[in-house]
Design a protein around this nucleic acid. Structure first.
Length: 203
DNA sequence: CTAAAGATGTCCT
DNA sequence: GGACATCTTTAGA
């Protein structure tokens, strides 16, 4: 690796203990982390700038609210796996699972600031506008080639899809608000974003 | 079996 | 600001 000093190697995937905690806390701490998608020789990277927490039986907006089903079963499994679901007949959304195994929870990755592989993302999205590549949950999965094939993928392996610390972290403040696009549970302030970041989704 | 909604995005007026 | 595409999943008969 290129790391010449001792200490944290920023290319390593976040370990399982990071995910095995309270979902709301993980949602906040995923801000300013780097989402990495490896496609053969190519690497796509983006800084996570917007997330939403979805819990379990105490959260009517969560897919896990009414207990396990075929779709949401990964939310009940080991933390640190991808939960990818298909919605509106055409879109995928990417979540990462949280909480200890057996306890449901996931964080929706809503937006990222493109860092690397921007040309590839432009091709996938069919636009030249960088700000429109991944400023929304379904735009992000299209830009990063995340589909149902990655549902259940272990994010701690450092293969295909994972999350790491940024190489050069910068100070930021967190903006909290209500979650977008839901009916039940709409009052919970579980949407988090990097204040002022231009790649946060509109609405 | 049937039906309705959905953690959205895009294009139109 | 609103219509609409498009189809899986889930709940209910």
């Amino acid at each position: 690796m290129e790391s010449s000093h001792s200490g944290t190697d920023s290319s390593l995937p976040l370990r399982r203990a990071f995910y095995e905690r309270n979902t709301v806390r993980v949602a906040k701490e995923l801000l300013d982390k780097v989402l990495v998608r490896r496609l053969g020789a190519t690497s796509l990277e983006g800084l996570i700038v917007e997330t939403e927490a979805y819990r379990g039986y105490d959260d009517a907006a969560s897919h896990a609210y009414r207990g396990p089903t075929r779709r949401n079963e990964v939310m009940f499994g080991e933390p640190g796996h991808a939960y990818v679901y298909f919605t509106y007949g055409m879109h995928y959304c990417l979540n990462v699972t949280t909480e200890p195994a057996g306890q449901p929870g996931a964080v929706l990755i809503r937006a990222a600031q493109p860092i690397r592989g921007i040309g590839e993302m432009k091709k996938r999205r069919g636009t030249e506008h960088v700000k429109d590549l991944s400023n929304g949950p379904a735009k992000l999965t299209q830009a990063f080639d995340v589909t149902k094939a990655l549902n259940g993928h272990d994010l701690t392996l450092g293969e295909k899809l994972y999350i790491t610390e940024p190489a050069h972290p910068e100070p930021f403040s967190i903006s909290a608000g209500t979650r977008i696009g839901i009916r039940a549970g709409a009052e919970k302030p579980w949407r988090f974003s990097i204040r002022g970041n231009p790649f946060v989704s509109k609405r």
